[in-house]
């Protein structure tokens, strides 16, 4: 017996942990990228705000997307409910209320990470201390994932951890493609051409995918191939196809999975049937938007089927009892 509310908390706990890790890596990679770019490059920090989809909230508070402002916004600004500290706090709250079902060490690591991030958050504002802070955050997230994988029974509760993690990953990958790749694909100022390579590399880096890309795609970093890798690769953990396959495996082990499975299959078909060479000509945004809508649907179907406990009405239940 798994209570809907417990399943929901487990799911969101996992999503938030994943979000913390993704945010940290995104900032870290952009940081490294900017160090490589010429001074007059227009890139800057604004794309990071776009990736989180919170530009409106950002410009309510800040005049410009300066490094410091964006850092604040992404890491500690409570106006941004997806900021790293808010995500940490949310994942901790979700874990707190379902502590009994997790290995003790998971709580300890998350708790430590939360205290660390709260105490050291201003480290992110200066370039010198930024790296150490963000790497610690990323490592701690990996530690949590590892402890879950190694010391928790891989039962139904664990399926909700995996569901949360993989849906958040797919969501993040689609956002990164949306914002970063789109800027890169159309013709650029000739001046920036030599830097396209490192920018594509940074797209891969922000999803921790450069090494794996080089192993599996035996060509140099090229836009179309990078997109194909991030959307359609079967093995890379942050490739959308891989994430969706994981979701599929989770759903197989859960009851009442018809509606979520239907949404999932729509997403999988979308990924399978896409001709990458055709969308690079300006249809990428449209494609990503459609994909994201399906991912939202998937989240909604999970919520409806598992978290709100609405699937079997008491009338059906009573009917079954009388049979």
């Amino acid at each position: 017996m798994l209570l809907s509310s417990v399943a929901e908390r487990v799911y969101w706990f996992a999503r938030y942990v994943e979000r913390v890790e993704n945010t940290a890596r995104m900032v870290l990679v952009n940081n490294n990228l900017l160090l490589d770019m010429p001074r007059n490059a227009t890139l800057g920090w604004a794309p990071l705000v776009s990736i989180t989809g919170k530009s409106e909230i950002f410009y309510d508070t800040y005049k410009e997307a300066s490094e410091r402002n964006v850092m604040r916004f992404l890491v500690m600004d409570t106006n941004n409910q997806s900021c790293m500290l808010c995500s940490l706090k949310n994942s901790r709250e979700n874990l707190r209320t379902s502590r009994a079902i997790f290995p003790r060490g998971v709580w300890e690591t998350l708790n430590d990470l939360y205290s660390y991030a709260k105490a050291n958050k201003s480290a992110v504002l200066t370039r010198r201390s930024r790296y150490e802070f963000l790497s610690h955050v990323i490592d701690s997230c990996h530690l949590i994932t590892g402890k879950l994988s190694a010391s928790m029974s891989h039962d139904q509760i664990y399926e909700f951890v995996r569901l949360g993690r993989n849906i958040e990953r797919a969501d993040m990958t689609s956002r990164v493609i949306d914002v970063r790749a789109d800027n890169l694909l159309p013709k650029h100022d000739e001046e920036l051409k030599p830097f396209d390579d490192i920018q594509w590399k940074s797209v891969l880096d922000s999803l921790a995918g450069y090494q794996m890309y080089r192993r599996y795609v035996h060509v140099r970093v090229r836009g179309v191939e990078v997109l194909r890798f991030l959307l359609q690769d079967t093995y890379f953990p942050r490739a959308i196809r891989h994430c969706l396959t994981q979701v599929e495996l989770c759903l197989r082990n859960l009851p009442l999975n018809e509606a979520p499975q239907y949404a999932l299959v729509r997403a999988q078909r979308k990924i399978d049937n896409i001709d990458i060479t055709k969308i690079v000509g300006g249809r990428l945004n449209e494609f990503i938007n459609e994909l994201q809508l399906i991912l939202y649907d998937l989240n909604d179907e999970l919520t409806y089927s598992y978290f709100e406990g609405k699937e079997v009405s008491p009338k059906i239940y009573k009917f079954r009892q009388h049979q």
């Binding site: 017996m1 798994l2 509310s5």
Partner: peptide, 25 residues
Amino acid sequence: ELVSGSDLIVEDDIVFMKTINGRSR
């Protein structure tokens, strides 16, 4: 099970808890 109020629902004067398998009396 340890439940909060929001885990329970009453229909036709019967109390159910919401689980991932649907409602359970």
